[in-house]
Design a protein around this nucleic acid. Structure first.
Lengths: 193, 193
DNA sequence: ATTATCTATAGATCTATAGATAATGC
DNA sequence: ATTATCTATAGATCTATAGATAATGC
């Protein structure tokens, strides 16, 4: 016990990354500090040398969760902007994403929790939401137009909503129907009207 | 202390109705048994003569929350089926609904919590989801067609998703933009294609 | 006599802190 | 000497239960 500053920084990141996953799985009030540290291979005591409070961890974890998909793509050497609407929709509204909440979209997993959260968390979430709308607008034809932004907002609400309801249904046929219906609709959205 | 059976039944309903509101506000793990009973003008002790466990209350409260809108309409003497898509969209995607989570749609308020819940809760939620899809299908032109059902699913996902994201944003302009954009889109949905 | 609710509390769980331990880094 | 993590625990909170109290209803 007693580690270098570099190791502390890595430990900090490990806790945040794990929290970003576990909180998406269990909700922002889900996992406790002790259990989380145990899963990270640590003990409770060290926690408060990293975070002033559990809330502070939650804020960092939400920020990390919001940026996780973008970071994953960049780590694979992929520019997220190069991913087309069709590709994005297929992975977002996939059975895999539905069944792996912890690695997925923070907005689908934590909508209500975020809305109830502290100002800090909501500010982070709102900023991320804006960036998501912008990224979606860029995937529409004529991205400078108001029509592109309109469709980007529609697509975003549809996708988070569909993933959420697909996760609610314990009838897999109904769940799949939701995913498939919305997948094909969003793909046709750029050509609509 | 010591009440009639009729009063007990009314007390039971009062607890469930209050829980349906407070759980939509704070999430399914939000309010505790003691606080809830206090708000109902009662004390902790009586709780377990009404429910075997907190989970049992949650299940009843979720069922109550899912049916609350329908019941409200019926109490006003309105047949929910007589409400048009346009009317429904305007109240669903209103600032009022956004700002009053406790009286509103259970799916928008509790999506992620429901998905994580016990089999009992998920079964109730899935059944309600099916009924919602059916009710929305009936509001579309040619309700017997597959196209009507497709649009009903789209509209449902869009509306729950939009309300959820509108609640996340702490920037009211962005929040209003989401609501307005989706409102007008859903109203045009029946005529689309 | 039965029972709906009350007061009081046991037991579990969870956040946060205090003090010890064993590395780092000047 | 400093500090990152550990062990141990205080204090708050929450679910559930036990036993008392005061009505109901045969």
């Amino acid at each position: 016990m007693g580690r270098s500053q570099l190791e502390k920084q890595k430990t900090h990141e490990r806790i945040v990354t794990l929290a970003a996953k576990r909180l998406r799985e269990e909700g922002l009030e889900g996992i406790g500090v002790a259990d989380l540290m145990k899963e990270a291979g640590l003990t409770v005591g060290g926690f408060y040398k990293h975070f002033a409070s559990r809330d502070e961890l939650v804020a960092e974890a939400v920020e990390s969760a919001i940026g996780s998909w973008r970071r994953q793509q960049e780590d694979k050497g992929i520019d997220p902007r190069s991913i087309s609407l069709d590709e994005y929709v297929d992975t977002y509204l996939s059975e895999r994403h539905r069944d792996h909440c912890g690695e997925g979209c923070a907005y689908a997993a934590l909508t209500a929790d975020m809305a109830r959260s502290s100002d800090t968390v909501r500010a982070v979430a709102t900023e991320g939401l804006r960036r998501n709308f912008d990224a979606m607008t860029a995937r529409m034809p004529k991205p400078e137009t108001a029509e592109a932004r309109r469709k980007a907002i529609i697509a975003s609400c549809l996708m988070t909503g569909a993933l959420g309801l697909a996760r609610v249904s314990n009838d897999e046929a109904l769940s799949d129907e939701i995913l498939e219906t919305v997948r094909s609709f969003v793909k046709e959205l750029p050509q609509a009207e």
